[in-house]
Design a protein around this nucleic acid. Structure first.
Lengths: 252, 252
DNA sequence: ACAAAAGTGTTCGAAGTACACCCATGT
DNA sequence: ACATGGGTGTACTTCGAACACTTTTGT
């Protein structure tokens, strides 16, 4: 080997923990498992597992791949249906009484139609969806309460600024359904008329497109929409993102 | 020990890398070191080091503490003068040819008057400030180019949304100085008049307060301002954050 | 006096919020 | 026919951008 070896210092165990969010009956919900062994026996915890490190210090999986693998192991959901993102690293000494661990937390946004397909994974026999409203964060195992709190802050931000809400709706969706995602995440009602205008802006900006069909939903059928994949978005953005900002003309 | 031990799986080495930003002569600059050993001998790299893990798998330092320690070791700057925040974890296999490592990246914002006080640390004999404009990210060691790119995106966002710009100005500052921070981070000129209005809003919102003195700066002396510490902010926020949003009244 | 920088005012458009109201459809 | 939810319009507000303008100082 042409390089010096890495120094022989003590290493922490590294895990990946998953914050799997979905909407269950209109409520923002999180996938939690009930621990079957100590420590924190019987408490709710985030699903997760150890990062796979290749033998001999090489190879293994990336952090993103580890998160995707955990997702599949814990839920059986295909990666393509789920939006993944890194939340951050948590590594205070004492967070795991068994020894020094640091965890990389990932959030996963699961559209509701896919959420019903979760099957309990091998090491998550007691996985269940828990509504985050009324979840007592202090009762979670390890430091998972703090991690969930950070994830909720981030999720609320992302749903507003980026199009994360689109990862939590079924695939054609009505304006009402998308609005209900925002309402669930922020836990407050939004004005339907104003939200429709926001949706129109998403269409102008190329994040969403209308599909011609309508869906019969009780009374008047609702228009249907579909998220535009990021790959296609670049090609269509020209109309609005250029030549719209700035002043158009000013009288003397 | 009442608990089962942690499983005996291979562990990656865990490091903390620092993105130390400041303004040098009006240009957003990053503290980089020139590597003195292979791999990447002679290339520029982020300062950083191994996370300290206590003996016997317990104790040691938190991630935040590790970042603060690295900051002091590499720069000699007191923690109190520097704003620290976690950027995220990077851990692709192959990022370090010596073996599997993951790094937790932290950014540190150093006000310019403190930046001149950096002294080269023991293992960073070749530390230097490098302007980020014109920095060839591809030439950095390891995956540090990607980390810097992520940090710049984050920094630009934080300077706009949160008050991160205040961490990059000297301690009383003029409107011009704060504007120059924004201009350096975004690398484009901003309208002074509009920026002054933004500063007025920061004052109303309690993030900044005026100090009575003025500073002679060539021509007309400029007003001076000071950032309000977060602890004091809560007590004064009432005026604007309540009772200002929402409509005030509407004719029939 | 004059240049340079500090600082104010004005206008336009984008977008958030609150609410009135029309429209289309299944029962 | 009519209740229900889909969808549009309107008024008020905040905020960013562009830029003309006045004020204050050192030389």
């Amino acid at each position: 080997m042409p390089y010096p070896f890495l120094p022989e210092v003590a290493r922490p165990a590294v895990t990946v923990d998953m914050l799997v969010f979905t909407l269950m009956e209109g409520a923002l919900s999180l996938l939690l498992i009930e621990r079957g062994q100590p420590p924190f026996l019987g408490r709710l915890a985030l699903p997760g597992g150890f990062l796979h490190v290749g033998a001999g210090g090489q190879g293994g999986e990336s952090l993103d791949d580890a998160a995707a693998r955990e997702l599949v192991e814990e839920t059986g959901l295909p990666r393509a249906q789920v939006t993944l993102g890194q939340l951050g690293a948590f590594g205070a000494p004492g967070r795991d009484p068994r020894g020094r661990t640091i965890t990389i937390a990932y959030f996963a946004l699961v559209p509701p139609h896919a959420a019903h397909g979760v099957r309990a994974g091998s090491d998550a026999a007691n996985a269940r969806w828990v509504p985050v409203a009324g979840l007592a964060l202090g009762t979670l195992a390890f430091d998972h309460g703090a991690i969930v709190a950070a994830a909720l802050t981030r999720l609320r931000h992302d749903v507003d600024r980026s199009g994360s809400a689109l990862a939590l709706v079924p695939e054609p969706f009505t304006a009402r359904e998308l609005r209900e995602v925002h309402e669930a995440v922020h836990h407050r009602a939004l004005d339907a008329a104003n939200f429709d205008r926001r949706l129109r802006r998403l269409i102008e900006d190329g994040y969403v497109e209308a599909v011609p069909e309508r869906r019969a939903t009780g009374r008047r059928p609702a228009r249907l929409f579909r998220a535009v994949p990021a790959e296609l978005r670049a090609a269509r953005t020209s109309a609005r993102s250029s030549g719209r900002r700035g002043r158009s003309g000013r009288p003397a």
